[in-house]
Design a protein around this nucleic acid. Structure first.
Lengths: 222, 222
DNA sequence: GTCACCAATAAACGAATGTTTAAAACATTA
DNA sequence: TAATGTTTTAAACATTCGTTTATTGGTGAC
């Protein structure tokens, strides 16, 4: 089947180039020539460059959400309505993220893509991700809510984004940081090393004391 | 003086557009037309688009490094060789960052630019920032080292980047997050509110317990 | 007043981009 | 085998990009 081969070769090449250079900086000609595919193949199979970008993300996020939902199902089964501890929730999410790209050894690419999704403008991509994968995030935050009853809702909202920033920022910029770390500390770190280092930091961040001063911010006119 | 006027009008327009859309997605024609300046003015005054990007950053980072160095000077004077507490160091850095763009109400732009500097490829920009502003960061990390003697060097290195990720990620993506927060919690947050929320989280992250398992990672052949 | 210098302008350049077209090659089915 | 539908291919399309050129306008020096 020649079609499938062409499609996957485009996706394989595109995801690497996107992760390395970003979306706007990667031309279809670069992708197709490196993938040894005709230039028109992208528009034929995907319709447009935007759709190609979305397809690259879908190939990671579809299996991720499926696994993550299943893992949360199992967790809720185990805890029978009892609140799931924060560490368990974080551990489960980390495991789901790590499992997905395992087969292709492309965890680094996956992380870089997530970073790009946040930082690069690409309004269409943000909308696409929000629409297709927003529900699983909502489910997760609901469970975190039960696990951290001491946090006001708004405080939890911000802290989740704080740690999200930590994780995505670190793992997506891994290469550059790793080079420095190896030069300065003679130390080779793998992604899994980093996840191990991240764990206590993320937990501590979520469980930090509430900020002093006004606990309640100015409420808008409702 | 017409020259100065043209130059600043280009910089004022460029920094906003870069922050909104990124570098590659912002054309010189968009900048010059919005700035009501001739297209060739950019190449005439700055030489190239790359140099314009660097100039945009320099206009923020030059005064920042100057202030930050001065603040650290004063701090070292005060503490007379004694170790400066971590909270004081973080507070000083936060204050220096917040002061710079105050005059132009462009803190948001400044933060977005910092985020772009990390996330967008732009190798030339990373090199430029490293070359011109690396020293002040080195000085700061040296002081943090004294303030956190319990941390192994490599662990401190990674944790500083963790919290850097938190701050840049949060503040550069502020607009989108703020919209959600306002919708969900009827709560209006300013940048300074966020800094107040960030403080305990950052401190907790830096002071979190060491990761369990191997404290030392695999050493490379030295 | 004219000369020299700097800035602003309009126009054009060459290169690169995403997309479309039309023909060829291939595969599938009857 | 003939007919049909799908994929690949080469070429061209229309834009857009950063940059350069040549000209004009303005300003201060002597």
């Amino acid at each position: 089947m020649a079609q499938t081969d062409t499609v996957t070769r485009i996706l394989d090449t595109a995801e690497v180039l996107f992760a390395e250079r970003g979306f706007a900086e990667t031309s279809l000609r670069t992708i197709t020539s490196k993938a040894k595919v005709n230039l028109a193949a992208v528009n034929y199979h995907f319709g447009s460059k935007k759709s190609l970008i979305q397809a690259v993300f879908a190939r990671y996020l579809d299996p991720f959400t499926e696994r993550f939902h299943a893992a949360l199902d199992a967790l809720e089964q185990d805890y029978q309505g009892q609140t799931i501890p924060l560490e368990v929730l974080l551990e489960t999410m980390a495991r789901s993220v790590l499992e997905v790209p395992a087969e292709r050894n492309s965890l680094k690419v996956f992380m870089k893509l997530l970073g790009l999704a946040y930082s690069q403008a690409q309004g269409h991509l943000r909308r696409y991700i929000q629409e297709h994968y927003g529900s699983v995030f909502t489910r997760f935050t609901g469970l975190v809510r039960k696990a951290t009853p001491e946090l006001p809702d708004s405080e939890r909202f911000w802290r989740l984004h704080f740690v999200l920033g930590t994780v995505i920022f670190t793992l997506s910029g891994l290469d550059a940081l790793r080079d420095i770390a190896e030069k300065d500390f003679d130390e080779h770190v793998s992604v899994r090393d980093l996840v191990r280092r991240l764990r206590p930091v993320v937990v501590a961040a979520l469980q930090a004391p509430l900020p002093e001063g006004a606990t309640e911010s100015i409420k808008a006119a409702g």
